[in-house]
Design a binder for these strands. Structure first.
Lengths: 340, 340
DNA sequence: GGCTGGCACTCGTCGTGAGTGAGTGCCAGT
DNA sequence: ACTGGCACTCACTCACGACGAGTGCCAGCC
């Protein structure tokens, strides 16, 4: 449309000012702070056009302009350059993550780091099981009719589950079972296990069949279906920063609720198949309760593979360039760590 | 002091009404709803005394009365009988927890259940390591110079940690190490392990000494110091229920922040050595940021032992009898489950 | 002596209305 | 195509008065 360069420049200025001040921005304030080289009247004309096109709106007549979701979208797509991180930030990321001792710790540190750097609510998905492969399976007797099944994946994730056996089992048998399981499954991608696992029962020796069968069903159920995705969350208190504007309306509750629903959060990462950051602004969110927020998410993993997602949830009025840069940087760094 | 039965009854009525309506309660409304058998004027006199003694206060002249922290304390100590749970609630607890498949699941279900039943923020501490004992230790080779150390405790908790070995180790050696570790440590309380573990290095065969040494240091470090306490949290969105009163003042942030600090939350359970419920009302909290809230906490564990704490955090204006009953019931139930 | 009804008083809340000023839209002029 | 000027809109603030819930006190009653 009729969006020449200056109009775009005006939009950028509006977004930046509004993000900074959190108040509707008027034509006069704009020219003062942004050396646009034109008068307020001219800016007003541009604003009128921008409003007509749906990029900005007035909360009420006689108020300044505020970007719409569509305006933010244009800003993100065409007007913002990714802001490189400061060396200090880089160092902070490095220092913070390097202390991690195991996967759990990596995830926890990451989520806190993200929350702290972006000052938003951060979400990190544990490396997905389905996309990783089996490194080792361990059977540990707990009592005569019970054992603990432990699975270690190549992403360092460890899953365990107690199995109630149909009858008592000897130590030798367990050793044998362990051997068989490992021989069949080590190195196999989790997604590819089901058919192999099925075969195990059939090929098991008669007296071990019942045991193997329960073992297998637990394996399938636990490790493929349930628990399949876990999440870490941090920075909820940053929501209170969204501004008393939203607090008074009581809009906070549904957001907090949505954040507690793992199922909902997992949706945020449904489509992060690549390392590219994805931004969902306001209405673009499928999750209705998050329509008042923006979500910046990205995939992460060793090299180019993606084993999980991470991201942040914040007000639509957020510093997109900075946030996107941070999310990307953290994701890349964590990816490198996983590659070892 | 001069707190006769009726004055106590008045206090109870005030607390109950205020908790229910969330509005300062006046003398007239009181007699109407509570069949006290006296006139509003009399109640007013009683109120004056209660106020003088510091149990209630007026937000402003010409407003009703509101209980003070001290008033709640008296109410909890002397005026409230624990409200037995309804069969429906009992059943809900049972149904909800019985589906749990492992310890992680138990903790998660518990915390959600608590949050749901009390409509408050719930916190559950994982069974503490120090108070439980070793059931099994497992060593799993991950590569030639790396292995995974898995520890299972009698509370069902599983801890794992990757160990970087000083040099390559044969499978046989690992088997031997595993045997030695288990022979020495199984059945031992975690608190009692350090001296035993030290001895292991000395008695190790020369060529295995280095390996055993790293193993031991990791064991000590990880399993005793770090990770020692973990927490699960749920129901944060219930905080938004605290009422727009507190929301507008922006008092929410510090509370959310406190809830994100594990260190702070762990303090809540410092003193839950017994199964008795403990109530900290407002100012009684050591954690300054939680002075606006009340905390109901209790220990839980199989039988009479306590392996961890659980509790809820909510506004001082809460249904104490109901909440206490719920927390207790859930704790007892979880305790039973852990006993198997 | 303790309880009650009556009464004057306090003070927060709500609604009204005028004043203020930021910000706009439009238009005529350069 | 931009600018300066101008009339207009309308949210926000504040002062004012009416209202009423709730109190404290007192004199009288049981």
């Amino acid at each position: 449309m009729g969006l020449d360069d200056r109009k775009l420049e005006v939009l950028r200025a509006i977004v930046e000012d509004y993000v900074a001040t959190q108040e509707p921005v008027g034509s006069k304030a704009l020219v003062e702070r942004h050396a646009l080289g034109v008068s307020p009247a001219t800016v007003r004309n541009d604003m009128a056009v921008l409003e007509e096109e749906g990029y900005i709106r007035q909360p009420h007549t006689s108020a300044g302009r505020v970007p719409t979701d569509r305006g933010y979208r244009l800003f993100v797509d065409r007007l913002s350059r990714v802001k490189p991180l400061s060396p200090a930030e880089r160092r902070a990321i490095e220092r913070f993550l390097n202390g991690a001792v195991d996967l759990d710790d990596v995830v926890h540190r990451t989520v806190r780091l993200l929350a702290q750097l972006t000052r938003q609510v951060a979400v990190v998905q544990y490396p997905s099981l389905t996309r990783s492969s089996v490194r080792h399976l361990e059977l540990v007797p707990v009592s005569t009719t019970r054992l603990l099944l432990v699975m270690i994946t190549d992403t360092g994730r460890v899953e365990q589950r107690v199995v109630e056996l149909p009858g008592p089992v000897e130590v030798d048998e367990i050793t044998e079972l362990r051997r068989t399981l490992n021989a069949t499954l080590v190195g196999v991608k989790l997604v590819d296990t089901p058919p192999l696992v099925q075969g195990l029962v059939e090929r098991a020796e008669p007296q071990a069949k019942a045991t193997m069968s329960t073992l297998v069903s637990v394996l399938l159920e636990t490790l493929v279906e349930r628990h399949e995705e876990r999440l870490a969350l941090a920075g909820t208190s940053n929501l209170a920063r969204m501004g008393p504007l939203d607090l008074t309306t009581g809009a906070l509750r549904p957001i907090l609720e949505a954040l507690e629903e793992e199922v909902i959060l997992l949706k945020l990462f449904d489509e992060v198949k690549s390392g590219a950051a994805r931004v969902r602004i306001g209405d673009e969110n499928e999750v209705v309760d998050l329509r008042a927020t923006s979500v910046v998410s990205t995939g992460y993993g060793p090299g180019a593979t993606v084993v999980g997602g991470m991201g942040i949830v914040g007000p639509t009025r957020m510093d997109y360039p900075g946030t996107i840069a941070t999310v990307r940087a953290v994701a890349r760094y964590v990816g490198e760590m996983l590659g070892h």
